[in-house]
Amino acid sequence: MSDTHYVLMNDYVSPYQSINPIGILALEPDTELPVRPNRFNFPFNVKDIDGDEIFWNFNKIEPLLFDYRQYHGHLVSSKMMELLDGLRLAPHYKKRLNVYMKGKPVPHDYFYLAFDRGSWHKGVQLDPEQIFYDVERSTYQLDRDGVILPSGFIALTPLASQYDVFQMTNVFYLSRYIVFTAKAKEQLEAVGVKGGKFVPLQEAFDAALKEGRQKLSDLLPKVKKPIKPWFADVSKKDHQD
């Protein structure tokens, strides 16, 4: 089943995706400059927001041309959101995203999307309705802290078949990306997803490492070389002589 799934990522070579839009997600608009630092924990505490809108505040005018941007959650155009509303999404939170630049509202039509993250205890997902990465059937390695590195085959739990779109919150190194079925991916590609790119699920970890400019070898536990006695090389040389 996991062979028919894709991960949506930022496409930084797209002309529609600026590399670093300097904007701050917030619960209120900033009408005075400079924009205040954000004190709300996006996307982890989005479930605690009562209203149906949030704000994206900028110190200067920025061109926002994308349909999709992964940025402390997921920023999507109204066109993309309309299509997503017709798909089977895992439990999530949707907010209208109001854009403010230089202290004034700017007429952009975006939504903010965050998936429910379940319940956690000491790094373990406790909510069975939020477990999409199948630890038992997947092959993986562990990093230096014992966290799963999904470097091998990625298997999905039966729960994944209930949705067209979900987020694998129970595997840290892929937890920020949205996963789509092949059919959902085709529907999105038919209308266009400017600024986003689809990567096959089995290639997603390598793509995530590349995006973060990381190497797998840097994450793995260091293997200590056995210490040779000081006379080992001397004895070998004497034997050769």
Results as ranks from 00 to 15, higher is better:
Arg117Pro: 01
Val99Tyr: 04
Asp116Val: 11
Gly152Ala: 13
Leu219Arg: 08
Val124Leu: 11
Gly192Trp: 08
Phe132Ile: 06
Val234Tyr: 04
Glu136Gln: 09
Glu189Arg: 10
Phe198His: 09
Glu189Phe: 06
Val99Pro: 02
Gln202Ile: 03
Gln130Glu: 13
Asn98Phe: 04
Ile227Ala: 11
Asp134Thr: 02
Lys95Cys: 08
Leu126Ile: 01
Phe205His: 08
Phe132Glu: 02
Trp230Thr: 05
Thr157Trp: 08
Met101Asn: 14
Trp230His: 10
Ala184Gln: 11
Met101Glu: 15
Gln162Lys: 06
Phe166His: 08
Ile148Tyr: 08
Phe166Asn: 03
Arg144Trp: 03
Met168Cys: 12
Ala114Ser: 14
Pro105Ser: 11
Leu149Thr: 01
Asp109Gly: 01
Leu113Gly: 02
Gly196Phe: 10
Ile131Arg: 12
Phe115Val: 02
Glu186Cys: 03
Asn98Thr: 03
Asp206Thr: 09
His108Glu: 15
Lys224Phe: 14
Asn98Val: 10
Lys237Phe: 10
Phe111Gly: 04
Asp127Arg: 03
Leu219Glu: 01
Thr181Ser: 15
Val165Ser: 08
Ala184Ser: 14
Asn98Gln: 15
Pro150Gly: 04
Lys215Asp: 15
Trp120Phe: 11
Tyr133Cys: 05
Arg117Cys: 11
Lys228Thr: 05
Asp134His: 08
Gly195Met: 04
Gln141Pro: 15
Ser161Cys: 07
Ile154Trp: 00
Met101Arg: 07
Pro105Tyr: 11
Pro200Cys: 01
Gly195Phe: 01
Phe115Met: 06
Pro107Leu: 01
His121Asp: 06
Lys183Glu: 15
Met168Asp: 04
Phe132Leu: 03
Leu97Gly: 04
Tyr133Phe: 14
Gln130Trp: 02
Ser161Ile: 08
Pro221Gly: 05
Leu219His: 04
Thr181Lys: 07
Tyr177Ser: 06
Ala207Asn: 08
Gly123Leu: 00
Leu142Cys: 02
Leu219Phe: 05
Lys236Gly: 10
Val171Arg: 06
Lys102Phe: 05
Asp116Met: 07
Ala155His: 10
Tyr173Gly: 00
Val234Phe: 05
Asp143Leu: 06
Lys95Gly: 07
Val234Trp: 07
Thr157Gln: 05
Phe153Cys: 11
Met168Leu: 12
Asp134Arg: 09
Asp233Glu: 12
Glu129Asn: 08
Ala208Arg: 14
His239Lys: 13
Leu216Cys: 09
Phe205Val: 02
Ser161Val: 13
Gln167Gly: 09
Trp120Ile: 04
